[in-house]
Write a protein that binds this DNA or RNA. Structure first.
Length: 432
RNA sequence: GUGGGUGUAGCUCAGUUGGUAGAGCACUUGGUUGUGGCCCAAGUGGCCGUGGGUUCAAGUCCCAUCACUCACCCCA
């Protein structure tokens, strides 16, 4: 039998309500903050990612799904969304329409990593990006928005970590200082860090190997090496977060895996997903648009790990099977014909209706109705039909009534709707 | 890419020192029940992940491979 690709997964019907809840909550909130949806393709020219994410990063070096198409163009399944959104911003000259563009997008990303808890090769992200705003207030607002979202979703065990990566003015100086600091203990560094020390010294900071942690323990902090402009920016971010009542931790070790980040970076971390602690992450990338050939444009954005968020929520809210409002149980050929047309009519009216078409016994039908969790069961037998009546049973109160066939669809619809109106939760979950 | 754990019915799992498979749940049917839930009975359903090897004989031992899973790594 053909199985799905490693690291890919099916999202089954039982899980969908949680996904929809996350998606709806997020989009409603983002819209309220002035973000608009943008939909971008899942494939781009490889060059876009190589240039934006950075040639030396793990993502570009060994995790992308890249292949030549039939004409030989190198294409890549997107490993992240920001590059595409920036590309669209430039390509459609959105800055001419309005230099400030706030957009969000939802969709699958692809990275060929070894699958693990909370880590898939096709995973979903919700991204939000704000172009054209240099103010640190925007940084704070975006982090605030993220905190509000998690709060709305009742995801609690999450803390916001923030840091500043500086800018092209101050970062080189810091890298040199860090390189000097670790020079003394080079021999104690892990093999990876020995390489990183010179190639990408910042990466040594978040290595988890104990000896490496020791080596960087007394390392100079990037925050102490910020230029005046970056320091002011960061100070305003933290002050604004205080103003907005967002709690956070300054995490000097927080480094991003994508080269385009500058200044503010942040990550929302949880302990409930094993080693995959990041639920959302992002930061400022003031140089990206220019690097991709657009006008010099400040920007900031983040990505939420949709799958991870859903998994955290599943831990507290186990998946629920959605129940129909009404189950139609027909006994006998004549009854089935009549009941079939009624159930179709009820479905067309938006009543959650389920009917067994297979000709089971009454016991079998009732069992099925019970398993589906239907609130009402309409029983139509040939005998009742002869008397121009059907039985409507309320499974919850265990009461039932006999209804005349005349105008039966209206009667049943009214009855079921009436009940549903008393139970808003039920209606919301079941109506489509 | 590296390491650990796992792979037997739809699901959760048993399977003893190697002798060609079991339970519970689910499903189907029947009985009982005031037309479902409880109970009783019967039944359907497994190339024991795949391919090799050892053996008279392999779910059971060996090798390989694939998949799942956790961790490293990386990141959301």
């Amino acid at each position: 039998m053909i199985q799905l690709i490693r690291g890919f997964k099916d999202i089954l019907p039982e899980e969908i309500p949680v996904w929809q809840q996350v998606e709806q909550t997020a989009t409603a909130l983002f819209e309220a903050f002035g973000f608009r949806e943008i939909r971008i393709p899942v494939m781009e020219r490889t060059e876009l990612f190589a240039r934006s994410i950075g040639e030396g990063t793990d993502i570009v070096e060994k995790e992308m799904y890249t292949f030549p198409d039939r004409k030989g163009d190198l294409l890549t399944l997107r490993p992240e969304a920001t590059a595409s959104v920036a590309r669209a911003y430039i390509q459609h000259k959105r800055y001419a329409v309005d230099p400030v563009q706030k957009v969000y997008t939802i969709g699958p990303m692809f990275r060929r990593e070894r699958p693990q808890k909370g880590r898939y090769r096709q995973f979903y992200q919700i991204n939000a990006e704000a172009f054209g705003v240099a103010s640190p207030l925007m940084d704070a607002q975006i982090i605030h928005m993220l905190a509000v979202l998690l709060d709305r979703l009742r995801v609690t065990a999450v803390t916001a970590h923030i840091n500043s990566l500086g800018c092209p003015v101050c970062r080189p100086g810091y890298k040199a200082a860090l390189c000097d600091h670790t020079a003394a203990g080079v021999d104690n560094l892990c093999a990876d860090c020995k390489r990183r020390r010179t190639q990408n010294p910042l990466r040594v900071l978040d290595c988890k190997v104990p000896t490496c942690r020791e080596a960087v323990a007394g390392a100079p902090s990037l925050l102490d090496h910020l230029c005046d402009a970056c320091r002011d920016h960061f100070t305003t971010v933290t002050e604004s977060l205080d103003l907005l009542g967002v709690s956070y931790e300054i995490d000097k070790q927080l480094v991003r895996g994508l080269d385009y980040y500058t200044r503010t970076t942040f990550e929302l971390q949880t302990r409930s997903l094993g080693a995959q602690s990041a639920v959302a992450g992002g930061g400022r990338y003031d140089g990206l648009v220019a690097a991709l050939g657009g006008p010099d444009t400040p920007a900031i954005g983040f990505a939420i790990g949709f799958d991870r968020l859903v998994e955290i929520m599943m831990q507290t809210q186990p998946p629920v099977r959605q129940a129909p409002d009404l189950f139609v149980a027909a006994l006998g050929d004549e009854s089935r014909k009549a009941a079939f047309s009624w159930s179709s009519a009820l479905g067309a009216r938006g009543i959650g209706t389920e009917m067994d078409l297979s000709g089971k016994s009454l016991k079998g039908l009732m069992k099925r109705a019970d398993r589906l969790g239907a609130r009402y069961v309409m029983i139509v037998g040939d005998a009742e039909l002869a008397q121009q009546a059907v039985v409507l049973r309320d499974m919850e109160t265990k009461t039932q009534q006999t209804l005349p066939i005349e105008g039966i669809v209206d009667r049943v619809a009214k009855q079921v709707r009436g009940k549903a109106a008393d139970e808003p939760g039920r209606t919301a979950a079941e109506s489509n």
